[in-house]
Design a protein around this nucleic acid. Structure first.
Length: 259
DNA sequence: ATGGCTATATGTTATAGA
């Protein structure tokens, strides 16, 4: 079961790029972020025609996540628990029925800038809620994958220019600490389990020739429960997507599981 | 700090992204 995460930065602008990618890479499951549309605005038929089931959790203009799957989906749940007043669409779960059942989450963590401030407070609270949900899922002792744009630069080697991010909400010590508290529940970073080397990135800014200068950061991650890490076969980044026509500023990151 | 690119909707400008 190949599971990819991809922040597409708007499905309306990215339908062609996403369709081409699905056809070439054939992920069994695609966890999408920043669909930037309400559910009714998602081009469901176009994706279904490619052989994918579609489950969305959208909102108007910003955010929004989706799960695309060539395999059956069960028990779809929308929203991250822990704050009834949170109206931002950043979390959707489903169980994928492959050779084994795998619970997957498509998530879009808050950016959090400017920090300090209310947006940063929301980010830290959101990461704490994600940790609580992960702890709940771990109690079930079944395979799961938390895939998405975590908006966290885990360590300086995940940025081409770490000094440029030192004061940024993506790399501040409190951000890294909140992320580590989640990882330390016992989750495995699928890409890093196979590729620990520096210089791997999943985002390059649209501005200032970031792509041309390879000024990137790694912030899109698939975090595996122990029962999913046991099934890990391989992992990678579809880096070439960033150099194509009308790209997203993110590229897909994927894992292959024996499931 | 400024600057600058992209997407969306609030739409000939503002907001958010990272």
């Amino acid at each position: 079961m190949k599971i990819a995460t991809f922040n597409i930065n708007g499905i309306k602008a990215r339908l062609e790029a996403v369709s081409t990618w699905l056809g070439e890479e054939r992920p069994d499951v695609a966890l999408l972020q920043e669909i930037k549309t309400v559910d009714e605005g998602f081009p469901r038929e176009a994706i279904e025609d490619l052989g994918y089931r579609v489950e969305t959790h959208g909102q108007k203009g910003f955010n929004g996540v989706a799960i695309l799957s060539r395999l059956p989906l069960e028990d779809v749940v929308r929203g991250l628990p822990g704050d009834e007043g949170d109206e931002q669409a950043r979390w959707i779960e489903a169980t994928v029925i492959g050779l084994k059942a795998v619970r997957v989450v498509a998530l879009y963590a808050p950016n959090g800038n400017p920090a300090p401030g209310p947006k940063y407070d929301y980010k830290l609270a959101w990461l704490a809620r994600a940790r609580e949900r992960a702890a709940e899922l771990l109690l079930q002792e079944e395979p799961f994958v938390l895939g998405g744009d975590w908006n966290v630069i885990e360590q300086d080697t995940d940025a081409a220019r770490p000094e440029a991010w030192r004061e940024d909400a993506l790399a501040l010590p409190d951000t890294r600490a909140a992320y580590r508290r989640l990882i330390n529940l016992g989750l495995t970073n699928g890409l890093r389990a196979r590729h620990p080397e520096p210089g791997l990135y999943s985002f390059w800014d649209f501005q200032a020739w970031a792509w041309e200068k390879n000024n990137g950061i790694l912030i899109d991650h698939l975090l595996l429960a122990p029962q999913a890490a046991d099934l890990l076969i391989g992992a990678g980044i579809d880096k070439d997507m960033r150099g194509r026509t009308k790209p997203s500023d993110h590229v897909p990151v994927w894992v292959e599981l024996d499931a």
